[in-house]
Amino acid sequence: MKSQEGMTIIVKTVTRISVWLIFVYGIYIIFHGHLTPGGGFGGGVIIALGFLNVFLAYGKEYIKKWLNIGLLHDLEATSAILFVGIGIIGIAMTGGFLANFLSKGTLFRLFSAGTIPLLNILIGAKVGVALFLVVWSLSLFHIDEGGEQ
């Protein structure tokens, strides 16, 4: 019998369809962070759960082929640096760290609220990737290795 990674075909099929919906929903939550409940962290968690869904259904090897883990590490660090960068631009433009330097727009529009949507997107990317990488790193520990005593 061929040993197959991941769960059964039913779970795989459902995951294949639903994971994109999960991603879209997470992105929606991130982009409407300044208007509705949610925001960068909530949406990021949803995106991370989407990744984890694939991870659980398809297994470790598939994830290695599907995603470039090194790139995800880079993305995580980059979004953090950009976050600090926006803060520093705030100092340069208006004198306060993370101060708003864009037009605030009209209330209740998607593109409004100055830098807040940008920051939400960066937080979303950071959280979504970081949370997935935490579970990924935990799964890399081999429980039987490296015993002492």
């Binding site: 090194g70 590490h73 880079d74 995580e76 660090a77 980059t78 953090a80 640096i81 600090v84 803060g87 520093i88 100092i91 004198g95 760290f97």
Partner: peptide, 23 residues
């Protein structure tokens, strides 16, 4: 206005290290 840099500099350094120096 010197004070925020004591938080910004180490944070920036930490993220730069994670980004550029994995090898």
């Amino acid at each position: 206005m010197i004070l925020p840099y004591f938080i910004i500099i180490p944070l920036l350094a930490a993220f730069l290290i994670t980004l550029f120096s994995r090898e």
